[in-house]
Each structure stands twice: as structure tokens, then as C-alpha cells.
């Protein structure tokens, strides 16, 4: 009589080496096709950006440029110089502001007992999911009243305020891993909350700070809604300027593509330089806060 175990052994037959190889080949083929599909637009952008206007019209977008030229890059930089600088300032200000406030907020929420602590945490979480469209009009009036419309300071303020909840929740995960007894020990050693934050909590969670900082920089750099509404001309960030270029006939496609590369470069550089911290940071969040 066939037992349940026999039946299971029949269904989970050990694979032969040839079946295994075929399966591996299929997996790899699938992954290569997927990777090509993802990289194709980037390839098209890169090749087009290195062509002359004439070559763009006469060759396939995916074809290699005969002899690469940087005329597109020069043109794009001319157009995007000021918006890129704006983006840089807004990103630096907004990211540092939100990371600092989020970090302090998470420190208080995770390491100190106070009334309505749970409510504060809940409100922060709610703020993350708040659709910005729903508050655009009151926000617009507020920024106007503060005389910050179309200023870099206005955009920095917005990104600081609206980036803070996400930063706080991310930091809270890391800070929860810092043992409470370390904070208590620092108190016993004569330090007040601020000194403990500066001397113990932040230095022992450098990877956390790096992770949240990169995340926030990327978000602000790529952001378009606030940029479009509150950065109309003088404070216009590069995302909007690039979009404007793509929407006009004045800019050639090679210039538009070069502009895209210019825009992507700082974020790419950030990932290349800080990528190792990011991976450690994502792992650290789940295991330890070191």
C-alpha cells in the first residue's frame, strides 16, 4: 500500500544534473532579457546624448554613435546650469534639515518616556502617507504669506517639514536597536539628553544616518510636485527645467538626453560612493544599529 511518505517522495523527485542545468539556463535567460529591457532606455539615452543633432535624425536611437561628441552635454549644461545648482542647494538644505529633525525626533521617541508618545508616533506615520495634493492650496497660501514663493529657502523648508516624518520613522527603527542601557549609562555618567544624542547615539549609528541621508537626497533631488508648484522660475530645480526642455521643440533630442544624464549623475555618484553604507544600513536596520 502506498503511504503518504511514498507519495511525497514521488512528487519531490530529486533533479538530475541535466535538468538542473537547463533550469539554471532558463533562469539566467529570463534575467538577462529582463535586465536588457530595463537598460534599453538608459542605453538609448546614452547613445543619443553622444550624437550630433543630424545623427539623431538619421540613425536609430539604439545605434552606437559613429564618433561620440559632447555637444549635447555642453548645450544641456548651458540650459541646466542654474537649475542644477538650485537642485543642489535645495537637496542639501532639505536633506540635512529633515535628517536632523527626523533624527532628533526619533531619538526622543525611542529613548524617552513622555505623555502622548504613541500619539506622536502615530501622527508621524500618518504624515508619511499624507497625499501632498490634498494640502497644496493651504501650503501655497502659507508659503506665499511667508514670502517664500519661488525661493530656494521655501523649497528647503517644505522638504525639511515633509521629509521629516519619513526620516523619523526610519531613524526610529535604527535607534530602537541602540540598547536603552547605553543611554541610561550616559545619563549616570553625567550627560544630559543633548550630549547623549551628540556623543553616543549619533556616532554609534553612523550607517543609519548615511542610509537616511542618501534616501532623502534621492527623494528631494528627483521630486517634481513641490518643485513645479513652488519653484516656478528663480528657484526652479533641474527636474522641472529638464521637463521644460523635453516639452519644447527648441531643445534637440541629444541635448534633452544629455540633460537627463546630467540630472542622473549626482544621484548615481551618491549611490556609487555610499552604496556600501546603504547595503550595510539596510541590513543593520534589521539586525543591529552598529
Amino acid at each position: 500500500m502506498e503511504t503518504a511518505l511514498d507519495a511525497r517522495q514521488k512528487t519531490v523527485m530529486p533533479r538530475t544534473p541535466s535538468t538542473q542545468k537547463a533550469l539554471h539556463a532558463a533562469y539566467y535567460a529570463l534575467l538577462i532579457v529582463y535586465a536588457l529591457f530595463c537598460l534599453l532606455p538608459l542605453w538609448g539615452t546614452l547613445t543619443t546624448s553622444l550624437k550630433t543633432s543630424q545623427a539623431v535624425e538619421t540613425t536609430s536611437p539604439l545605434a552606437m554613435p559613429g564618433s561620440p561628441v559632447f555637444v549635447g552635454y555642453r548645450g544641456a549644461l548651458e540650459e541646466l546650469k542654474t537649475p542644477l545648482l538650485n537642485s543642489l542647494i535645495i537637496t542639501a538644505g532639505g536633506a540635512l534639515g529633515s535628517v536632523f529633525l527626523g533624527s532628533v525626533c526619533a531619538y526622543a521617541l525611542t529613548k524617552f518616556q513622555f505623555r502622548f508618545r504613541g500619539l506622536f508616533y502615530l501622527l508621524l506615520t500618518v504624515a508619511i502617507y499624507l497625499p501632498y495634493q490634498a494640502i497644496l492650496i493651504p501650503l501655497f497660501r502659507t508659503i506665499n504669506a511667508l514670502n517664500l514663493y519661488d525661493t530656494k529657502a521655501g523649497l528647503i523648508l517644505l522638504h525639511t517639514v515633509f521629509g521629516m516624518p519619513m526620516c523619523a520613522v526610519m531613524f526610529a527603527g535604527f535607534y530602537a536597536e541602540v540598547p536603552d542601557c547605553v543611554v541610561k549609562q550616559a545619563m549616570i555618567d553625567g550627560s544630559g539628553p543633548w550630549r547623549i544624542y551628540r556623543k553616543v547615539v549619533v556616532p554609534s549609528t553612523k550607517i543609519a544616518t548615511m542610509t537616511v541621508l542618501v534616501f532623502q537626497c534621492t527623494s528631494i533631488w528627483n521630486e517634481m510636485l513641490f518643485a513645479l508648484i513652488f519653484g516656478a522660475a528663480d528657484a526652479m530645480p533641474a527636474t522641472i527645467a529638464l521637463n521644460n526642455m523635453a516639452g519644447t521643440l527648441a531643445a534637440e533630442r541629444n541635448v534633452q538626453m544629455a540633460g537627463s544624464i546630467w540630472l542622473a549623475m549626482p544621484v548615481l555618484a551618491l549611490y556609487i560612493i555610499l552604496g556600501k553604507y546603504l547595503i550595510r544600513g539596510y541590513m543593520a536596520g534589521s539586525v543591529t544599529a552598529s
Partner: peptide, 28 residues
């Protein structure tokens, strides 16, 4: 507050500051 009581404490988990050397911990 604890920081003004002039007491010293050793926790079971030792609670050493992970970012500091042994000297840093002792001189903190």
C-alpha cells in the same frame, strides 16, 4: 536627575559606548 547624583553604575550588559575605545568609555 541621574546625571547630577554623582553615582556610578555598571549594568549587566556593560552598556559600553560602542563608538568609543575603552579609554573613551572610561574618560567619558
Amino acid at each position: 536627575p541621574p546625571q547630577e547624583r554623582n553615582i556610578a553604575m555598571v549594568f549587566q550588559e556593560y552598556a559600553l559606548y560602542p563608538n568609543m575605545t575603552a579609554r573613551g568609555n572610561m574618560s567619558f
